[in-house]
Design a protein around this nucleic acid. Sequence first.
DNA 1: TTTAACGTTGCAAACGATTGTAACTTAACC
DNA 2: GGTTAAGTTACAATCGTTTGCAACGTTAAA
Lengths: 340, 340
Amino acid sequence: MKTHLTMKDIARDLNLSVSTVSRALRDDPTIAEETRKMIKQYAAEHHFKPNTLAASLRTRESNIIGVIIPDMSNLFFAMVIAGMEDEAEKNNYSIVTVQSREDYKTEVKAVHTLLKTRVDGILVSLSKTTTNYDHFKEVIDNHVPIVFYDRICTGILTDKVVCTDYKGAYDAVDYMIKTGCRRIGYFGSDSNLEIAKNRKKGYIDALRKHDIDIDPELIVNCDTGKEAKLLAPDILKMNNPPDAILAINDSTASGILYAAKKLGIKIPEQLSLCGFGDGYISKHTFPSLTSVFQDPFEIGRQAMRLLINKIKHPELFDHITNKVVNTSLQIQESTRKLPD
Amino acid sequence: MKTHLTMKDIARDLNLSVSTVSRALRDDPTIAEETRKMIKQYAAEHHFKPNTLAASLRTRESNIIGVIIPDMSNLFFAMVIAGMEDEAEKNNYSIVTVQSREDYKTEVKAVHTLLKTRVDGILVSLSKTTTNYDHFKEVIDNHVPIVFYDRICTGILTDKVVCTDYKGAYDAVDYMIKTGCRRIGYFGSDSNLEIAKNRKKGYIDALRKHDIDIDPELIVNCDTGKEAKLLAPDILKMNNPPDAILAINDSTASGILYAAKKLGIKIPEQLSLCGFGDGYISKHTFPSLTSVFQDPFEIGRQAMRLLINKIKHPELFDHITNKVVNTSLQIQESTRKLPD
DNA sequence: TTTAACGTTGCAAACGATTGTAACTTAACC
DNA sequence: GGTTAAGTTACAATCGTTTGCAACGTTAAA
């Protein structure tokens, strides 16, 4: 291994001390203008790259943010990371990502990996199977700032960034009612995740507001496209079928769409369909899918920004912060039009 | 900042020297069984986490792999990362990801970021706009192992992991011909990426093998769904329209599908359609899309495995390695059936 | 009894930066 | 001329590990 150029080398070549070199490179005003320029030029010419490990060791700051992702191959999360990366880069932070694979034990391990890496802060979205939060308490005990995004943790008091799940679902149902739909179904899971609860609540409250009775037969426990393809036909073939369905995510909506088309049901004439998601699937279906857009990129950005603020200005952010990213109903072809 | 427990603390509490503690924790056989056990137990009980920064500084190994991704919100790459993560974790490596956003300058910056981070190795897929490779030469000059994946670099001699783009395209066209198609079009870009060249070559060679003339009118320079929606109608409405199209990726295929359906063209009766990709979009279209599956997860895994091998056993892997991941034609609903 | 060998542990110097403080030079002031 | 202050730069400790080598006690061989 060829060894890198170090400050020591520069100091020797320029007949200076290491501390002077260090200070010059960090623009310390106590170093004479002339000396500083000389050092910087020498460094640039020789492609000097300061050893961040050594600096981190000394300053106790790694400038690395740890991110825990339930499933990296889920496009929503992939885009969340993209947003985080974007914001991190602007602030001179790197990110290391670890997956929990929707598994509690893996999540615990991920937390320990990040703690060992001495990250300056952690961003995390809960795995579907997590119900115990001791590993997060450990993070807090270690004084490592932590921010939850999207799938937040209610069992513990922390900062979080969520999107308006309740309002998104509410608005979607409200919209479909205004287009004339009356029997509106819901496909979603009964998991313990806040986002699942909130979306369902939005659905129910919208119906209530319009004095429409809730029919339990129209509520299906299902949150993937695969399941939806299997479960949708039953509900679509009933005597009094729904004229609209809100799905907890686009994958599920796409599954319902597929099943409906197989049955010859006309979309949106006979059935309005609305999903929830990152805007990817919804563009590729036919007809394109009306969907509550979540803006994962923005969620990632906001979460990263909040975390960096907490790291850099702990005194200003010593309280719990709750950021909300707006969802927006993106009306496309799978829902009826509003009457003029 | 509360300070962490260090080896020094353990040594003091146990009346030993730091070196003994260090050796014991790394299972050095020169440390007496009994002492070792005692130290390990104490460390475990007190949740000791060795400071990897210090260790890295000393050993000059960071156990971090740098990954450069053209676009993290592209599901294909998201899944590649998932595969890398999987393999890295098994070998006790972490990964830090940086995006190039398909931009040459950003890519150069990304390389420097990783070099500064003192990663043990780099995995990279070229941005669409990169034509100069000096930044990669710099990596090699710094003796940092580098492996290209998917979008490889031919301007420089390095290890790489690719999938069988040529064969994938060839087989797809061959299959469509066997189902009776004769006028087969191609939607793809003329970029300088190897994958683009190889897919087009596969398409052309398959036609040649069956003595079908190549009609330049059926070849469209286009590689996104958006463009395809705009460009496809022209070719579909010509007097002598294609009866099949191979698209360079699923997004493009999905765009063509959309346009065809708008025009009332029956899929696959009037037009067979085949894409190329990670198997995600192709499941969500209607009809579902026949597509050359690339297995991004496997590509990521293989690339990571190769890189780690080069890092750990440089003497065994001092030659250029070229790994190939097989593609497979996934026949779904958008292509005609083979005659019995 | 001496010596060699072995099994264990400790000493101290790295790794490459950061930073409080000391030391030096020069100019300015009384 | 002596004192002081400002402006520069150097010294040395430090961050928490790793690791070559020295040193120790014990046992076995000579």
